[in-house]
Amino acid sequence: MKFVAHITLFILLGPLLVGVVRKTKAFLSCRQGASVFQPFLDLWKLFRRGIVRSTSASWVFDLSAPVVLGASLVLAAATPLWSREVPLPMHFILFLYLMALPRFFQTLAGLDTGSAFGGLGSSREVAVSAMAEPALILSFCGLAYLGGADTVSGMVAVVPPGRIPWRPEVILLAGTMFLLLLAENARIPVDDPATHLELTMIHEAMVLDHAGVDLAMIQLASGVRLVLFSAIVSGILFPQALSLPTFLAIPAAVVKVVLSGALIGAVEAGMARMKLSRVASYLLIATVLAAIALSVRYAG
């Protein structure tokens, strides 16, 4: 029962978060924007459409969408959203490496259609993720220190008693995780999800030949992953919310996700996409920040 609620909440919050990001962005650029529930309607439409399958594609292409969404849901099952009790507690290294499974299949599917766009997106996607790995590992190490646990659910959710909650390393780690959230979820300044120029896209170029059900699953997976990262960042900053009783904790989780959506939207409205060759420096900054956060632990 709890398991079903956990996964359902992730699936429902994903499109909502995307909607909130878009609405915030529209608001800040003085536009009306679509309703925050528009992504749900888009998904509903896509799920009822058939697909055009490229004649170049193999079974890897067919399998990619279920793998991407399935693995993202397994990851979601390990992420604390409203409670420290998650359906599938997972060691943080396993969690990070499991993120490679959907990426592997998604990028392969990009190459499978024989389109230059797919290859272009895949190539950039794997390069960005590879360079983000050290920062991810280091910041998760830092979190595991703070939480005193090896599992993702255990480590984001604990504030040691008798300590002030927002110590410098906590803020540093939350900042690092936010930088990584933007990089891993194809947001500005690393990627622009709203661009119409294929040459400047990463994620969207990769899924250009996906349609209908496949595209719906992939968009849903993107939403789930965005919620997952938001849950971790907000879990670092507001761990108390995870100890609330369920009837309060679930609304608190929704509020946290909506707030992080507003934050992402504000960043997107205020910034332009970086030149692709500067992404490496961006990720290096994240790595250095994580390293500083870890060194604070040694000094203290």
Partner: peptide, 24 residues
């Protein structure tokens, strides 16, 4: 998870239809 989604995809494709076409 993957098996379930694969079945869902197969079911939906049978209902919605699937046709072959060139890469865009």
């Amino acid at each position: 998870a993957i098996g379930g989604l694969w079945l869902l995809r197969t079911f939906l494709l049978r209902r919605n239809g699937q046709r072959a076409g060139g890469t865009w």
